[in-house]
Simulated assay, not measured.
Amino acid sequence: MFDTVCPSGLAPIRFGDKWAGMIIRCLQDGPRRFSELRVPLRGITAKVLAGSLRTLVRDGLIVRTAHPAPTQRVEYALTPLGRSMIGPMDAACAWTREHWDELLDAREASSAPS
């Protein structure tokens, strides 16, 4: 999903905006800071990441926790509702892997000159 050779945009099943599924995947092993999320999400801008995080917080899928001084930091973590998305996402990823060649063929056929 995070490999540039594997464009997640090919998957016909989306969870939220373009980045939401990948953000959820990044948080499945535990909380992360904003800067830590930008490492696996190489192609995302800070502005788009902030907007996607706000949307996921608004929808109750992640929680934003601001830790007070002396080491002020903000972490994002999955809520139980967000964690419940992992199973459906696994199923969608398995389906995409199973039909990968068909999806590529269809995409190539539709972009071929008529």
Rank of each mutant, 00 (worst) to 15 (best):
T65A: 07
P80A: 05
S52M: 02
T65E: 07
R97E: 13
G82I: 08
R73I: 01
T65K: 08
V39E: 15
I62Y: 02
P68A: 01
A91I: 10
A69Y: 04
E75F: 07
E75S: 12
R58V: 09
C93L: 15
T55M: 05
P31K: 12
L56S: 09
V39K: 13
P31M: 10
L61G: 06
M22S: 09
R97Y: 08
L27H: 09
G9S: 10
M85N: 13
A50E: 02
R73N: 06
L49F: 01
G43C: 04
L37S: 13
R83D: 05
L27P: 08
P40I: 01
R25P: 05
R54T: 12
K47P: 00
L37E: 09
T96N: 09
W95M: 10
L49S: 01
G21F: 03
R33A: 09
I86C: 11
V5F: 15
W95E: 09
R38I: 10
S52V: 06
P12G: 14
Y76Q: 07
L78T: 01
T79V: 03
P88C: 14
A109C: 14
P68Y: 03
E36Y: 11
I62R: 00
D90R: 15
G16R: 05
T65M: 02
R14Y: 09
R33D: 08
P40H: 03
I23Q: 04
R64D: 06
A91H: 14
A20I: 15
G82E: 04
M1P: 05
V57M: 04
R54Y: 03
A11I: 14
L61A: 10
K18Q: 10
T79P: 03
R32I: 00
T45C: 08
E102S: 01
P88I: 15
L104P: 03
A91C: 07
R54V: 05
R33P: 06
R54S: 11
M89C: 09
S84T: 11
A92C: 12
P7I: 11
L61P: 00
L56Y: 00
